[in-house]
Amino acid sequence: MTSPKIKLTNVCKRFGPKVVLDGINLEVAAGESLVIIGGSGSGKSVTLKCILGLLTPDEGTIEIDGEPVIGMKRAERERVNRNIGMLFQGGALFDSLKIWENVAFGLIQGQGKNRVEAKAIAMEKLAAVGLGPEVAELAPAELSGGMQKRVGLARAIATEPEIIFFDEPTTGLDPIMGDVINDLIVKCVRELGATAMSITHDMASARKISDRIAMLYKGKIIWEGQTAEIDNADEAHVDQFIHGRAEGPIQMELRRL
């Protein structure tokens, strides 16, 4: 049996007294698309940041391609990251660079490609996400939110990574643009044959882009299974979450006036 592409074992993370991740165990197979769902503050973003090396877990191990990545030296981590693409929630495009330079950034800085070659690839990737050459010379601030998300996606796939992470890919977009982004994610991930891991609280998006779904609640994975099985999951938290009900075991922490 091949080892999983991403493996988290008993990952814990605390911020002061607050336990955010409480012993997470998760595996993502090569070529699989896993979506982690969960409410705000459930630990989704922290999980992603721990895998990306932006935060260091207090306990547990994280393996990428069978290689433990926690405590890796900076140069080693950069080598691992060269196989990773990331679409940030807000796009995280570099304001000081033009659109094509944003898309080509990983090619120029990470892979050492020259600017002419990198620009040609960037234009291809922009076309792949439905953006024409007219946007290439613009600044990120000149684009709408949906277009910025597409540029972020183009940047994430520009280096043709083996693993792509998506952080709330449809948040802040109208339903139609959200669906366009979902379609693009599915298309890009399939074309690259990449392993994908996403976090979202948008169930429409989760159903569309995932092979498998895991639900995070209070720092623990409380359910995981095939996407088709989620409607029949015999779990009250999952049932409440996917139907978006206020009543149920998940209680929002509201301060009464």
């Binding site: 940041k49 990306l52 090396g53 932006l54 900076r74 950069e78 080598r79 990251n81 060269r82 990773i84 693409g85 990331m86 940030f88 929630q89 807000g90 995280a92 495009l93 570099f94 304001d95 950034f105 990983g106 800085q109 990470g110 940047r155």
Partner: peptide, 18 residues
């Protein structure tokens, strides 16, 4: 500061740039 709060610095890290 703006780069930090808009995750642009995190993006640099994920793009293998220190």
């Amino acid at each position: 500061g703006t780069m930090r709060v808009t995750e642009q610095i995190d993006a640099l890290d994920t793009l293998s740039t220190n």
